[in-house]
Amino acid sequence: MTYLKVEIVTPDGLSYTCDDAKLVVVRTIDGELGIMPGHTPIIAPLAIDEVRVKKERETTEQDIIATNGGIMEVRDDVLSIIADSAEKSTDIDVPRAERAKLRAEARIEEAKKEQDIDRLRRAEVALSRAINRINVSKK
């Protein structure tokens, strides 16, 4: 039986690894992509979203990891993701993520008042990251 090896690396080192994945679902900047063993080689930029790793086809159980974008490469049944950060749903500090969401929302309002496009974009990215972490923590 063929499996997919999954590795998620952040600046802090190896954040997640799995040697026996049957299906991995990621969201690229162009849309959702499912990766199974035997997938053709691909490199794609990832959106801020969750990575779902399923080990068995017959079960709904899966590992869910919040990633803040990054780059994904698939080659020779190895899926490697390089991301700024990655957290399993069980490791997310929800109160911290909720505080980050509130801070980002406040920064968005300030940037809109000041018409500062760069600050607005950075605050919107921070808000997306916080919301992603909150959503993944509930799964």
Rank of each mutant, 00 (worst) to 15 (best):
M1S: 05
M1G: 08
T2Q: 13
T2H: 09
L4Y: 05
K5A: 06
V6Q: 11
I8F: 07
P11M: 11
L14Q: 05
S15K: 04
Y16H: 04
Y16F: 14
C18H: 14
D20T: 12
A21I: 02
K22G: 00
K22F: 01
V24P: 06
R27C: 09
T28L: 05
T28Q: 12
D30C: 04
D30F: 07
E32C: 03
I35Y: 02
M36T: 15
P37G: 11
G38M: 10
G38K: 14
H39A: 13
I42Y: 05
I42K: 14
I42N: 05
I43G: 08
P45W: 00
P45K: 13
L46S: 04
L46H: 05
I48P: 00
D49N: 10
D49T: 07
D49Y: 11
E50G: 06
E50P: 02
V51F: 11
V51W: 11
V51N: 05
R52A: 11
V53W: 10
K55E: 14
E56P: 01
E56T: 12
E58Q: 05
T60V: 09
E61M: 10
E61A: 14
D63T: 11
D63Q: 05
I64P: 12
I64R: 14
I65F: 07
I65W: 05
A66V: 03
A66E: 01
A66K: 01
A66M: 03
T67G: 06
N68E: 03
G70S: 07
I71R: 01
E73A: 13
V74Q: 13
V74S: 12
R75M: 13
R75K: 08
D77W: 14
D77V: 06
D77G: 03
V78K: 15
L79E: 06
S80R: 15
A83F: 04
A83S: 15
A83V: 11
A83D: 09
A83Y: 02
A83I: 01
A83P: 10
A83G: 12
D84W: 01
D84H: 06
S85R: 02
S85K: 01
E87F: 05
E87T: 01
K88D: 02
T90V: 14
T90I: 12
D91F: 03
D91M: 09
I92S: 05
D93G: 03
V94F: 10
V94M: 15
R96Y: 09
A97W: 02
E98I: 04
R99Q: 11
R99M: 13
R99W: 00
A100G: 04
K101Y: 12
R103Q: 13
R103P: 11
A104E: 06
E105T: 08
E105N: 13
E105H: 06
A106Y: 13
A106R: 15
R107Y: 07
I108M: 09
E109F: 02
E110D: 09
E110I: 15
A111G: 02
K112R: 14
K113F: 08
Q115Y: 04
Q115W: 04
D116P: 01
D116Q: 00
I117M: 06
D118Y: 02
D118I: 14
R119G: 08
R119V: 00
L120M: 12
L120W: 00
L120H: 03
L120K: 05
R121T: 08
A123W: 06
A123T: 12
E124L: 09
E124F: 00
L127Y: 12
R129L: 01
I131Q: 11
V136D: 07
